[in-house]
Design a protein around this nucleic acid. Structure first.
Lengths: 116, 116
DNA sequence: TTTGGATATGCTTTATAAAGCATATCGATA
DNA sequence: TATCGATATGCTTTATAAAGCATATCCAAA
């Protein structure tokens, strides 16, 4: 009847803030996953084509804003060192995914109601 | 009992996509409002410290992706011309605010459930 | 006590999105 | 038909976040 022809959908980004700054977003969660997989910040950064500089800074920021650090640094050792996720780090990933998922479902529901 | 001390909240951004690209987000809605207030793209851009170039491009993009244009351009006339919102433009603002509001409420609800 | 590969960090370079500049064009009004 | 302040658009410059480079430091293991 009317001339609606274009199709619209809803996009979103979500993140968790702490009083002193950005805490967790998509990028940081991906970094955590890569650290988990690769066992070091260096390798994680390389894997996601990010500079070590930035990856290291992200880890630093996250750890500062968390109640319990998410990434544990290992200096020395037979491999020269590395980094691994703490329990809190693993949980952070879970929590963030759940959050994202819920909002995704909600926006999909909303997009059906919207009439542009 | 446990050592939870930091306070977390959820931040988000939402936008409306059309198949051929980004359609409406915070920035564009603000621009629409400024055009409504100021009656021209030039003045709207100035008011929000945005370059005319960019503001004009945004209007162009929005109009291309909408079923009915959101901004009507006026060339010539006693003031030399200007721009004003169409009915669809006014509605777009309403719809976007409603969308943002609903998601805001939902994230606030979710933030209470989250335990970091 | 040497080795190794990682963490840690200052400094320089680069990439690119945004801004800025210049100028042509538009057309209702008076 | 001259005017006016806006729209329209190519081209150049700038700002700045990200990347890249260089190098010092760390310490468990062998």
């Amino acid at each position: 009847m009317d001339s609606e022809q274009k199709k619209y959908s809803i996009g979103f980004r979500v993140w968790i803030k702490e009083e002193n700054g950005h805490y967790l977003g998509r990028g940081r969660i991906t970094l955590l996953e890569q650290i988990k997989t690769n066992g070091s910040i260096t390798k994680a950064a390389k894997a996601m084509q990010m500079s070590y500089r930035q990856a290291w800074q992200m880890v630093e920021d996250m750890n500062k804003l968390s109640n319990n650090i998410l990434v544990e640094k290992i200096l020395g050792g037979k491999g020269g060192g590395g980094a691994k996720l703490t329990k809190a780090g693993e949980e952070a990933i879970e929590i963030f995914y759940l959050l994202e998922e819920k909002i995704k479902n909600y926006t999909e529901k909303l997009s059906k109601e919207i009439n542009l």
